[in-house]
Structures are given as C-alpha cells and as structure tokens.
Design a protein around this nucleic acid. Structure first.
Lengths: 212, 212
DNA sequence: CGGTCTCTTGATTGTTGTCAAAGGCGGTGG
DNA sequence: CCACCGCCTTTGACAACAATCAAGAGACCG
C-alpha cells in the first residue's frame, strides 16, 4: 500500500495528523472511463488523485458534455464542493487508470483548513482551478479555427497519441469540424500531418495570428 | 475616512495588524466606467472593494469584450493575480461609483496567507470566484434563448433598471439578438414587458424548460 | 429642436452542427 | 485466411443559429 508520507500534500504533517487521515481514508483504483463523481451529487469524500489523470466536464440538460479541464496526479479533486458544502460542480472522469485516496472529509475537514500548511496547499489548488476555468471561459469565446490552432500549438507533442474524435471532445466541437479545420490548415500550408498523426508546423506565426 | 475596523475582512485583526495594513494601503474613488485594472498587467495592488460593484471581463485580440462575472462590495479584487504572482487574468471595470482600498501586497502579502482568519476569508473568496467561473462556462454552452431565459428569471427584479444594450453585454450577445429573443418570448406568451421595461412572467415553466 | 442613443426589424452572411454516405483500418471469430 | 464488425476519418449537403449591416422609429437631453 502507498505510504501517506510519500504524498506531497502530507509530507509535512505530524504523525498524529497522518494518523487521523489514515484512519478516515481509503485508496481506490479506477479504470479509464470510470467516473469518480458526478456533478450535482452531494459530496461524500474529498479525493486526492495519486496516480493518473482526470477529465472534468459538465453535462447539459440534453446530455451533451462540455469539457472544461484536465488534472494530473498529484492533485486535489472535489475540494471545492467538499469544503464549501455544495454539490459537485462538475463530473470527474478518469482519462487513464487512476489511483485515488478517498478521504472522509466530514471527519478531517477542519484539519485541512486549520493546518496552515494544508491550507496553503488548498489555496494553491484553488488558484490552479481558477486559472483553468478562466482559460476555459476564454476558449469558449474563440472561433473553432482559433481553438484548434491554440490546441495544436500547446499540445503538439501529445497530438499523435489521441484520435481526432478524442481531441474534438476536448475542444468542444464535432469530429467533422475538427477534420475540416485541420484540412484547411494543411491546404494553407500552416501545418503538415503524417500518417501517424504526427504534426509539423510550417507557419506557426499564421496560426498564432488567426484571431487578430 | 473609513475606519479599517469597519471592513469585515479586518474586523478581527489585532491593532498591530491593522496598523500594518493602514501603513501600506490607500483609499481610492472610481466612477462608473473606470477601470481598476487591466488583464495582462502586472499586479501592483491587492484591492478590497468597499463600496459599489464591479464587472469583470476579458478582451480578445479583436478588442471584443467577453463578460464573465460581477462582484459587489465588500469583496476582494485581484487577489488571484496578486497572490500567485501572475498578471491580472481579467479586466475590472466599475459598474457604479466605487470605493476601493488599494493594498501594497508586496508589503503585507505574507500577512494575508499567514493569518488564519484572513486565509480563510481568502479561501472563501476563491470559492466564490470558482462558482462564478463555472457558471460562466456553463452559460457559454447555452443557446442565446436559454441564456436570456436564465437571465430574466434570475434578474427579473433588476431588469427594468438596465437598457437592453447593457443586458446584452452581460449576456455576451448583440442587442439585436436580445431584442429578437425577447420578442419571441412575448409572442409565445412566456412573458410580458411594459413600457418601463418591467417584466412579468406568464409561463415561467416553459422558459425553464427551453433547454430540454 | 437638433443630436445622440436605444430599440426594432429586415436582409444577408458566416459559422458550426447534423445527417448521411463511403473508405480505411484493426481486431475477431469462423 | 477471409468475412465481418466496429470505430475513426473524411466529405458533401443541408439546416440552425447568431452576428453583421443597414435603416428607421422613438426617447431623452441639452
């Protein structure tokens, strides 16, 4: 089993504190595609993502998913809902196999807020959420071409590891639209894409200036 | 001049602490329309909005504003940028006459994070930002009709105090589109609007179920 | 009473989603 | 080894949506 001491959040806690967390928490494994929690559920646990990565999205009334952001281990999960006593704001779905520490925060909650070190970690985590959310809001006001351009510039390295269908989900557009946009970029000689989805930039400047 | 003791954030501080803040802060008055800070600027101050209300928005490369959210006194302003050492994420523009306390956080910053009471206030403020941002992301995935419906249900009271042009800005749509949507709602007998922009709901259920 | 701003309406355009069809590719089971 | 299935991708045709452009009517203010 994983030693709590090895988790960065807890490395500076006293033995007593570690003991409390140990007592009220349990490790759980998830497969890719599993949902850790659903939006609008009442939070039961605070999660610490120990291994793997998780996609966060919202689902609208028609069942359509709107992708918001992505977090990698090690990070807090569900902390906003847990500590502010509201339902989960988003749905957390594993993008890969994940190991998660589930903490019964009703027993340890005070703890997190009162311990200065943990509180600072919490603030840091909240900052990151805010950055990601501002980024998501920003993206939502972009045209699809701009969104695709931004994505391929930022994520060119991992581009070849994903299907276009997966990428289109993260970009909140249809695979058809993504295909057409990439095609246009190729025709205009902004990029080249080989048979293995490997991407090469020919005119990165033009891509960057799409939105101006 | 306003006594720092009367500001909720500071009411529980010691005399010494109040002294430090007093030493490194100054009050400033803004008129409606004035900008307190611009996105991408390096933060110099942490602000506490003492009186009035402020709109937060992002401006894209083409100069188009994308409205994000609104805050009312008393609240923190610019705290994310100030404490995480990045540029301001959004532009803060006064919606009304405002009184703002400008704090030189480079002198008092540690203070905020170390004082358990202030730190908790900071966390609370960050939660609120996150809620507003998730709400903004959510809205951005709605159709204009749904966005208008949501707005008039939530803001029916203040509806008559604003011009349609102002409202359309907050809804991130053009005045023409807003006018057409309201017209459709009237034709379908969901709402009535009198000469003074006073709104009456006739079929609120239909409005709520637009998105399903 | 002239000017500015708001609101409305029509016509048009650009963008993106939807639907449908077809080809490719990989895996599976007979 | 081949037939088949399922998924991904591409392409075309089309529809829905919302912005833009343009014009005109009305309200408010100096």
């Amino acid at each position: 089993m994983i030693d709590l001491r090895n988790i960065s959040y807890f490395s500076k806690l006293s033995d007593d504190e570690i003991g409390v967390i140990k007592k009220y928490s349990v490790f759980e494994e998830f497969d890719a595609g599993d949902v850790i929690y659903y939006e609008d559920e009442k939070p039961v646990y605070l999660f610490v993502l120990i291994k793997g990565s998780v996609d966060l999205y919202k689902t609208n009334l028609k069942g359509k998913q709107f992708y918001i952001y992505h977090i990698n281990a090690v990070d807090l999960l569900g902390e906003v809902a847990a500590f502010s006593d509201i339902t989960y704001l988003v749905t957390a779905e594993c993008a890969t196999k994940c190991t998660v520490l589930k903490i019964d925060y009703s027993k340890t909650g005070k703890f997190f807020c009162d311990n200065p070190y943990l509180c600072r970690e919490l603030v840091k985590s909240l900052y990151e959420r805010i950055l990601s959310l501002v980024n998501a809001v920003d993206d939502s006001s972009l045209k699809t071409k701009e969104r695709v351009a931004k994505y391929i510039i930022q994520e060119s390295a991992s581009f070849k590891d994903k299907t276009y269908t997966e990428i289109s989900k993260k970009l909140n557009m249809t695979p058809e639209t993504l295909s057409r946009v990439l095609n246009e970029f190729k025709k205009r000689a902004y990029i080249e894409i080989d048979d293995h989805h490997e991407i090469t930039f020919i005119d990165e400047e033009k891509l960057k200036n799409l939105g101006s």
